[in-house]
Design a protein around this nucleic acid. Structure first.
Length: 593
RNA sequence: GGGGUUAUGGUGUAGCCUGGUUAACACGUCGCCCUGUCAAGGCGAAGAUCGCGGGUUCGAAUCCCGUUGACCCCGCCA
């Protein structure tokens, strides 16, 4: 891993860090500073493992040393300044598991810079501690090796991001944190404005409008490691504030943006020492749903959903016949080795499919060249044979069949696919499976109003060849919107934007907004478009999610220094909190609760 | 808004289903011993009214109701 150019971390209190001494330093007088990680008193010789961000170094105090009394008084997590001489560990005492394990520092001076209470939990990585306790004492949690590593790595990756984007002509421009509330999309966090009582700022859900306006300003290429805020219910991969690598470029098409992002990922994963695809595969949104039942398929695994409607077109099985009669489909997915699933496992898969909308799930085990299933009696031998061929089953496999409308069958089998990956753990074909999912539908019908709403972003352009369909078949217009997927996680979403007023206005019309209403809702961007708008597009990538994947954790809380709980509170600062009467009075706010 | 899991010394857990002695174990803490450990070791000690409130019962960590926090999921998140 690259080190910073500024190598030396020597200060007035230390000549070296606790992670850098080796046999090459033998005989040197050094001074170190750090925390007492562990101490071992053998009655005679006394060992201290002194820890800082960079590592751990063993300090030795001998029984004849006047320092022995000082050493005996030390407790865990005291902060020390130690002076001494480096020497190779005597005899066979080198510790191969420790970076500095071949040496130790014989203490000549120990100064206690700060004392510590006993810690509320053990900092060693093997020790168990609940996340609630960790968050309450986050400053201690961050002393743990894994957490410290994550934060340092996050810092280094953001440096790689900045360097790459600077090198590619991007300008880092800050957009406002205090901005205007919009009725669309997620709920806003609002901030009362004292100087204009009764008015409120909103924290940005994304710099979307500002970055597009910057393109209209002629800034050509913009990026920002931007904080974005959403007042919505939280999840393991969702925080009320998150960081995105946000960028926008002028005079580009989808492929231009893709090349920049691929280059960015090459730099990041190259920095991590990993090789990734030169070009990321592209997949139509429709295909992703058809083959994988998901708009963010995990392509570390190659198995797909197979169409089986033709096999069962004459089926007497009510479930299949019924679905087909109503214009639905019969589709199936194979779980390699799934025949070992117990009845309970089968219930769990079925539950997963039902959660995704399915009314039920047909499952069959394949053993000794024969199918085995409670529903086998409804499937003719001919159908069984065709199914075995279509699914290319081997002994020990299982097959799961969904019969429903295509819009239900797809996500249901997608959920089954995810379940199979999680439980049967097939061999991944690659470590990092990037994927572009393209051409999402532009608009989506809202049945209650008869109007349409944008699927991702109100400024996304329709595909040029689909523009004519805007008038005739708005629900089926495909857009220039694309998602970047990594290992089944949506990393971000980008698009080529509308730069033509007429098309943007048409989209607004489908959403039920006339010119004035659009101007009221989207203000500056609509007005700015009147004065020469370059074709432009961009993407926002979830930096927390990216770092979580890189750090190998399921929770983005592990890559954020001070995250919030699922109810939105910060356990260490105890935010949010109530305001004083006087503060409310100044804001002219009365609480009604 | 809905569903699920969970809360027991400083920390992490067991005990709860099937109510009944001084609530068990590991780590940590404290004391003593120990000259080569490195998650040191040995001996000993202290430390919990079992999240909170109510109920059932002769008796509640255990059963019931409510409530709060944390975590997971659905809705939601352009």
């Amino acid at each position: 891993m690259n080190e910073n150019k500024y190598e030396s971390r020597a200060t007035s209190l230390r000549t070296h860090t606790c992670g850098e001494l080796s046999a090459a330093n033998a005989g040197q007088k050094v001074s170190l500073a750090g925390w007492v990680f562990t101490k071992r008193n053998h009655g005679g010789v006394f060992f201290i493992n002194l820890r800082d961000l960079y590592g751990v170094t063993q300090i030795v105090v001998n029984p004849d040393s006047p320092l022995f009394k000082v050493a005996e008084e030390l407790k865990s997590e005291y902060v020390l300044h130690v002076e001494g001489t480096v020497r190779p560990r005597p005899g066979t005492n080198a510790n191969k598991n420790m970076k500095t394990g071949e040496i130790e520092v014989v203490a000549e001076k120990i100064e206690v810079l700060s004392q510590s209470h006993p810690l509320p939990f053990d900092l060693k990585e093997y020790a168990g501690v609940t996340e609630e306790t960790r968050l309450k004492y986050r400053y201690l949690d961050l002393r743990r090796e894994n957490m410290a590593k994550n934060l340092v790595l996050r810092s280094k990756v953001s440096q790689v991001v900045r360097n790459y984007l600077y090198d590619n002509g991007f300008n880092e421009i800050e957009t406002p944190m205090l901005t205007r509330s919009t009725p669309e999309g997620a709920r806003d966090f609002v901030v009362p404005c004292r100087s204009n009582p009764g008015t409120f700022y909103a924290l940005p859900q994304s710099p979307q409008q500002f970055k597009q306006v910057l393109m209209m300003s002629g800034m050509d290429r913009y990026f920002q490691l931007a904080r974005a805020f959403r007042d919505e219910e939280l999840r393991a991969d969702r925080q009320p504030e998150h960081t995105q690598i946000d960028m926008e470029m002028s005079f580009v098409d989808e492929q231009d943006i893709a090349r920049i992002v691929e280059g960015l990922m090459h730099n990041i994963f190259g920095f991590l020492g990993d090789k990734i695809d030169d070009r990321f595969p592209e997949m139509e949104f429709d295909d992703a749903m058809l083959k994988y039942g998901s708009d963010k398929p995990d392509l570390r695994y190659t198995f797909e959903i197979k169409e089986c409607s033709d096999i069962f077109k004459n089926s007497q099985f009510k479930v299949f016949a019924g679905a087909l009669a109503e214009g639905g489909v019969v589709r199936a997915i194979k779980g390699e080795g799934g025949a070992k699933f117990s009845r309970k496992d089968m219930d769990n898969v079925t539950a997963a499919a039902k959660k995704a909308g399915a009314k039920g799930l047909v499952w069959l085990r394949y053993k000794d060249g024969k199918w085995e299933s409670p529903t086998l009696k409804f499937i003719t031998e001919e159908e069984q044979k065709a199914l075995a061929e279509r699914m290319e089953v081997k002994d020990g496999d299982a097959v799961f069949i969904a019969a429903d409308k295509a819009a239900v069958a797809a996500p249901s089998l997608g959920a089954v696919r995810t379940f199979i990956i999680k439980t049967l753990k097939p061999q991944p074909v690659k470590k990092w499976a990037f994927l572009w999912v393209r051409h999402f539908p532009l608009l989506e019908l809202v049945p209650e109003t008869g109007k349409y709403t944008f699927t991702h972003n109100p400024f996304t352009a329709p595909l040029p060849e689909e523009i004519s369909k805007l008038d005739t078949d708005p629900a089926n217009v495909k857009s220039c919107q694309f998602d970047l997927v990594l290992n089944g996680t949506e990393l971000g979403s980008g698009s080529v934007r509308n730069h033509r007023r007429d098309i943007q206005e048409k989209v607004f019309e489908h959403m039920g907004y006339g010119k004035e209403e659009a101007r009221r809702r989207f203000g500056m961007i609509v007005t700015a478009m009147d004065y020469g708008c370059p074709p432009h597009g961009g993407i926002g990538l979830g930096f927390d999610r990216l770092m979580a994947i890189i750090c190998g954790t399921d929770s983005i809380r592990d890559v954020i220094a001070f995250p919030k709980t699922t109810s939105g509170s910060c356990l260490v600062s105890e935010a949010p909190s109530e305001l004083d009467e006087s503060q409310l009075k100044e804001l002219k706010i009365k609480l009604d609760m």
